[in-house]
Design a protein around this nucleic acid. Structure first.
Lengths: 205, 205
DNA sequence: AAGCTCATGTGAGCAGGGTTTACATCACTG
DNA sequence: CAGTGATGTAAACCCTGCTCACATGAGCTT
C-alpha cells in the first residue's frame, strides 16, 4: 500500500490512474489526457497502465461506470420517495443532476460523450439503474396527475432526463461554441423548465 | 481547379480538407480525425493543411462556423414567420434542429462539443445569429400567450433550445453510454415535449 | 514577354503518444 | 522454499502534430 513509490510495485496504480484521469479530463476535456501522462504522474513507466486497462477507452468506460453509480445514488437521495410531492422531488432530482455534472465533469463527459464504439453490459446496466430512478419518479408523478393529462410515464421520464441533460450539457462544464450566456444559474433555468413542464401535467404549484 | 492532382497545386485543398474532416468526424467522433490523414486523403503532404488552418482546432472551428450558419437558415425556414401559429412553428423548428443534427453530425459535434479553449468572435456571432431565431420565436410565442402565464421570452427560448439540444445530444449521433433506447423517434419525443411545455404557457393544443 | 511576388505545396525533422513484446520483480501459496 | 501469477520495466515500432527551409507556379506589373 505505498503511494510515494518506495517499492518496485506501486501498490495502488489502478486508483491513481483513475483519479489522475479524472483531474486531467476535468481540466482539458475528454481528449485531453494522455495515457503516458497518467503513467508519468503516477511515477510509473508508460506501459504500466496497460496492466489495468486494455486501452484509453477502457479507462473512460470505468469512469463512466462509476459515474452512473454515483449519479444513481444522488438521484435516489434527491427523490426521497417523492416527498413532499412528486413535482418538488423531481425538481430536487434536477438540481442533483446538475450538481453531479458540476462536481465530476470528467465522469459526466465519459458518460455522455464517451466511446462511440461498443458498450460493455455492466456499463449499460449502470446507466439503466440511474435512469430507473427518474423513470420511477415519472411513474409517481403520472399517478398523481389528473387522469385527463396523463402522458406515458416513460415519455415523461425521457423529457425530464432530456431537460436535465440539455441544461448540463449546454451550461455546465467546459464551454463550447454553442454555449449561451445565462442571465440566471443553470439550476434556476432547469427548475423553471421542469416547473412549466410539470404544470402542464396538472402537477406542482 | 484540379481535383485528381495533375498539377503541383491542389487547387481546392481547403474545401477538400473540410469535407474529409466532416466525413471522418461523422464516422469516428470529434477526436477521430488526424490532420495527417486528411492530407493523405487529399493526396497532399502532411504539412500542406497548415497553409489553410493554424491547427486541428481551427478546422473544427471552421466546421462549427459553417454549421451555425446552416442551422440558422434551417431554423429560419422552419419558423416561417410563425405561421400558422407560434406553437406549430416552434415544433417545426424542433424538427429542423434534429434534422440538422442528423444530417451533419460532424458540424453538430464541432458546435457543441468542440474547442474547450478560446472562441473566435465570428464563431460567437454565428452562434448568436442561430439562437436569435429561436429567441425571436419565443418572443412571438410569449406575445400570443395569455398574460397571466407569460414567462420571460429569453427563458422560453432557452428552454426550447435546451430541449432540442438535449434530444439531439442524447438520441442522435454516435451512441454514448448514457443513450437510452427510445420507443419512438427522437422527433416525436421532442415534439411531445415541446407540446407539453408550450401548453403550459397557454399555447397550442 | 520578362520578371516579381506571394500563396501554396514539399521534405526533412523533432518531440511525444499508443501499443506491443520480452523480461524483471515481488507477494503469496502450497 | 520453490513455483506462480500479478504487476511494473525497457525497448521498440509506427503514427501524429507541428515547424522550418525550400520549391513551384499563378497572376500581376511593366
Amino acid at each position: 500500500m505505498s503511494f510515494g513509490r518506495d517499492s518496485y510495485h506501486h501498490g495502488n496504480l489502478r486508483e491513481a490512474l483513475v483519479e489522475a484521469a479524472r483531474r486531467l479530463i476535468a481540466e482539458r476535456g475528454l481528449g485531453g489526457f494522455a495515457f503516458a501522462e497518467l503513467a508519468r504522474a503516477a511515477g510509473v513507466s508508460p506501459a504500466a497502465p496497460y496492466r489495468h486497462f486494455r486501452d484509453r477507452g477502457a479507462l473512460v468506460a470505468e469512469l463512466a461506470l462509476r459515474g452512473f453509480a454515483m449519479l444513481r445514488e444522488d438521484l435516489l437521495t434527491a427523490w426521497n420517495d417523492g416527498r413532499p410531492d412528486p413535482a418538488a422531488a423531481i425538481e430536487r432530482c434536477g438540481r442533483a443532476y446538475l450538481h453531479f455534472a458540476r462536481r465530476d465533469p470528467a465522469a459526466y463527459a465519459a458518460m455522455f460523450d464517451g466511446t462511440p464504439g461498443e458498450t460493455d453490459p455492466a456499463l449499460r446496466a449502470a446507466a439503466d439503474a440511474a435512469f430507473a430512478v427518474v423513470r420511477n419518479a415519472a411513474e409517481a408523478a403520472c399517478a398523481a396527475a389528473p387522469t385527463r393529462n396523463r402522458p406515458p410515464a416513460l415519455m415523461v421520464a425521457l423529457h425530464v432526463w432530456t431537460l436535465c441533460h440539455g441544461t448540463a450539457s449546454l451550461f455546465t462544464g467546459p464551454p463550447s461554441p454553442g454555449r449561451r450566456p445565462l442571465p440566471m444559474t443553470p439550476e434556476d433555468l432547469l427548475e423553471a423548465g421542469l416547473l412549466v413542464y410539470l404544470r402542464s401535467l396538472g402537477l406542482g404549484g
